[in-house]
Design a protein around this nucleic acid. Structure first.
Length: 436
DNA sequence: GGAACACGCGCC
DNA sequence: AAAGGGCGCGTGTTCC
């Protein structure tokens, strides 16, 4: 168990084994007819789309074959490639199709084909993966991700959220029960605020202010209250949101430019404006980069360690030296390691917070609610199956169970918040009014 | 006949 | 060219 200290081993990972075992045993009830019906609808639509595609591209065209799609788009239709894959061939991904959609009627059909086959081929197979009890039993790997996140075999952590067909409505509660789910609110940003020590972000969290809204007001000198930014200045809020997500992901200025459709200069300017308002965030990121470059590893708030030897590759390089191809590759790996380190200190600490919340919930269920089943963890979200007559009470307890984790002992003093939802299925959850 | 890779894409 | 971290899966393709 490399990368773990005594606390993480003894107080987190080892006791979590029994919790995850209980989740795996419980499983999520599945509405099989829902998936069968959905499957038929998708097959009908797919047949139609494939027929139309073959009208354009030939009777034996297989839109599942990247090679054939590439040949069709860039040789038969002579459309201009937008970008390349890792192997230097012309990419046919969704971004490319989106850019080319007006150029030929087959292009939007390919997009549609991809979306439909994904739903049909991957997510409609859920009924084939059930145990005899008709439930989907996930298999978790608590050390499956380098960041400390819990990974799971299978598809349960990637069930589509915004598909038009309601895949999530196929995951249901037993009769006489409801699904209760709770997710942490803007937790990665709270972790960033906590570990960077930024006083403005911290105060905003203490006041319960929308963090993207607040940052937009600061960065763009907006003349409105943070909570009104969402309605009144959505464009500014979206930009700041992209920056703050980018910081969590370790995104570069080039990446930000791409997501916001800006030039590199504009993206750099935007980042400068942001960091001018939040200098402690910049300081924190610089410190992470420096440490991982010096040590070849980085520790998060709870002492989880990730080794990133690539961060030491380009230590002695000077700028403006000419680079050979292999040197370029070293620099790429060095930068990737820095991004991974920056992401790790946020994602890693967040993952441990989820694990602590799970331990607390599990202990509480064992002691007080033996009829409630703990079903699922989705990184910042927990699912339970709750008897109808216990829903009201449990819903009132859950936020505190998840959020009061005694993190002051690690120097983390900010409050966490969680939003609770309930409903008959995963796809039909409705917010539960906070107690007060 | 199966393993490994390539690509694309679903989630947080 | 790549660009944004962490996962897992399905299909096509190539290689052993």
């Amino acid at each position: 168990m490399s990368g773990l200290n005594r606390f993480l081993i003894e107080d987190v990972e080892v006791p979590l084994v029994a919790v995850l075992a209980d989740l795996e045993d419980a499983g999520y009830r599945v509405d099989v007819p829902h998936f069968e019906q959905l499957s038929q609808v998708l097959e009908t639509e797919l047949n139609e789309v494939v027929a139309q595609l073959r009208d354009h591209a030939g009777a034996d065209f297989n839109p599942n074959s990247h090679d054939q799609v590439r040949t069709f788009l860039f040789e038969t239709l002579k459309l201009p490639p937008l970008k390349e894959t890792a192997q230097r061939s012309a990419s046919t991904d969704q971004e490319t199709l989106e850019a080319l959609k007006a150029a030929h009627p087959a292009v939007p059909l390919l997009s549609r084909f991809r979306a439909l086959t994904k739903l049909h081929g991957t997510y409609c197979k859920v009924p084939t993966q059930l145990d005899d009890d008709g439930r989907y039993h996930p298999v978790f790997d608590q050390l499956g991700a380098e960041t400390g996140r819990i990974s799971s075999k299978g598809i349960i952590q990637t069930i589509p959220k915004h598909d038009a067909y309601g895949i999530r409505r196929g995951f249901i509660a037993d009769p006489g029960h409801q699904i209760v789910a709770a997710d942490f609110v803007q937790r990665e940003l709270c972790v960033l605020a906590g570990v960077s020590g930024d006083p403005v972000l911290q105060q905003a969290i203490l006041n319960g202010v929308d963090l993207h809204g607040l940052a937009a007001v600061k960065v763009f000198s907006l003349d409105c209250a943070p909570q009104d930014v969402k309605a009144q200045r959505p464009a500014e809020r979206d930009r700041v949101k992209a920056i703050q997500f980018g910081i969590i992901y370790g995104q570069s200025a080039a990446g930000l430019a791409s997501t916001l459709d800006l030039t590199l200069d504009e993206a750099n300017q935007l980042l400068d404006h942001y960091f001018a308002q939040f200098p402690d965030v910049r300081g924190f990121i610089n410190d992470v980069h420096q440490r991982v470059c010096r040590d070849g590893f980085i520790d998060d708030l709870f002492g989880r360690r990730r080794y990133l030897p690539d961060a030491q590759l380009a230590r002695s390089r000077r700028k403006n030296e000419r680079m050979s191809g292999s040197e370029r590759d070293l620099v790429r790996r060095y930068k990737a390691a820095q991004r991974a380190a920056q992401n790790f200190v946020i994602q890693g600490a967040s993952a441990t917070i989820t694990k602590l919340a799970m331990l607390r919930c599990h202990r509480h269920l064992c002691a007080e609610h033996p009829r409630i089943r703990f079903l699922l963890t989705l990184h910042d979200e927990l699912h339970f199956e709750v008897p109808d007559d216990e829903v009201q009470h449990f819903v009132s307890e859950l936020p505190d169970l998840m959020c009061r984790l005694d993190l002051e002992r690690f120097g983390f003093t900010l409050p966490l918040t969680a939003e609770v939802k309930a409903g008959p299925s995963w796809g039909a959850l409705r917010p539960v009014a906070p107690q007060g």
